[in-house]
Each structure stands twice: as C-alpha cells, then as structure tokens.
C-alpha cells in the first residue's frame, strides 16, 4: 500500500477529536478506583473507632499530609508520563519529595529516642499486615489507572507502569490511613512506603507488556 493512500484513508471522514482526553480517562478511573478501595476498607477493615480523637493528634496530620502529598505528586506526573515528548524530570523530583521529607522527620525522631525503644516505634503493632493491606486496597485504583493509560500514549512503559502503581499505592494509603491505628512517622516511613511500593513494582514489571501501543 502506498503511504499517500494510507494518509487519504486516515484523513477521510470525521477526523474531529474530543478534547480533555486525559481527564475523561483519569477522572472515572481514579474516582471509581478510590470508591472501590474505600468500600473494601470499610467492609474488610473498618474505620478506626477513635478516628475523631486521633484527628486531634498532630502526628495524624503528618501521616495524612504525607499520603495526600504523595498522591498529589504522582497525580501531577500522570499527564506527563501519559503523553509523548513531555519532560518528566521535575515531576519525578516532586514525587520523590514527600518520602524524603518523611524519612528526615522519621530519622530525627528516632535519633531522639532511647535506642531500646527504637525498634518498637518502627514496628508498631501492625507492621506485619500494613504493607499487604495497602497493596490489597491499591488493586482497584491500579486497574483503573492502567486502563486510563492504555487509552493514552506513554512512551516510557516501565516508568509509566511504576508511576501509575505508585499513585494507586498512595491513593490506597490515603484510604488505609482512616483504618490504621499507627501514627509514628518512622512506622509510616517504613511500612506505608513498602506497601505503596508493591503496586509500583508490579507496574514496573508489567508496564512494558500491558501499556504497549
């Protein structure tokens, strides 16, 4: 087939494009994904009963600030990683910032502690379940975000998968933090990040296969 014939074929008929292509995919994907994650959390885990009380403690807001900032930074990177030819370096720095700040805060807190207490603060009461529950809750937003990206055009598939996974993990952590009894920064800096990294790893692994176009 001649290339000019292919061009005539492609340009024939109605070639209009609907605008806001990214919003039309990411808004339903993330909205429904979050809703499903929230329902899973309420049904399987339940909101912590002393939530109102916990919200009066500054550490609660440190944790909430971290997960929301991380989700926002990942969300801001989505249009960049889903479009061909857009520079990404700053968006990646922005994604790295919340974990770095939290690690500094956690390290400062641990340094001040009696060495004998440090392990107990890092491990908390729920370190065994926290990462897996976050990974579990990240499943609906993860599937939604992959679907959204499949309709767009990421060119760095491994990175796109990893960032999409990281976003779904951060969104799941936002939901999970309403259940989670832990407040200490060293706990969040370790086990939350580990949980958030599980879908990110899955995204990096499967991105090149699932996001190809």
């Amino acid at each position: 087939m001649k290339t000019d014939d292919l061009i005539d074929f492609l340009a024939a008929g109605d070639c209009r494009v609907e605008s806001h292509a990214l919003a039309r995919r990411f808004v339903p994907a993330i909205g429904l994904g979050m809703l499903a994650a929230a329902l899973m959390m309420v049904a399987l885990l339940g909101v912590r009963r002393d939530l109102a009380e916990a919200m009066t403690v500054p550490e609660f807001w440190v944790k909430a600030g971290f997960v929301v900032a991380l989700a926002a930074a990942c969300l801001a990177a989505m249009p960049r990683v889903s479009r061909p030819g857009v520079p990404l370096a700053w968006a990646l720095c922005l994604v790295a910032a919340p974990p770095l700040v939290l690690w500094v805060a956690a390290a400062a807190m641990l340094v001040d502690l009696d060495p004998a207490q440090r392990a107990a603060v890092v491990l908390g009461q729920t370190w065994k379940s926290c990462p897996f529950l976050i990974a579990l809750l990240s499943l609906p937003p993860f599937l939604g975000i992959l679907w959204a990206m499949r309709g767009l055009a990421p060119t760095r598939l491994r990175l796109a998968g990893a960032l999409g996974g990281f976003l779904s993990g951060a969104l799941a952590a936002c939901v999970y933090s309403l259940h989670c009894p832990e407040l200490a920064a060293p706990f969040v800096a370790t086990w939350y990040l580990l949980g958030i990294s599980i879908p990110a790893l899955a995204g990096a692994l499967f991105g090149p296969v699932l996001l190809r176009w």
């Binding site: 290339t3 292919l6 857009v86 767009l152 055009a153 176009w213």
Partner: peptide
C-alpha cells in the same frame, strides 16, 4: 508511525 500518530492524536497538548 502515521497510524500511531492518528490513533494517539488525542494525547497532543
């Protein structure tokens, strides 16, 4: 590449 550009043209900002 032309077909790809056509199919993904909604991603041009």
């Amino acid at each position: 590449s032309l077909l790809a550009i056509h199919n993904q043209r909604h991603t041009y900002d």
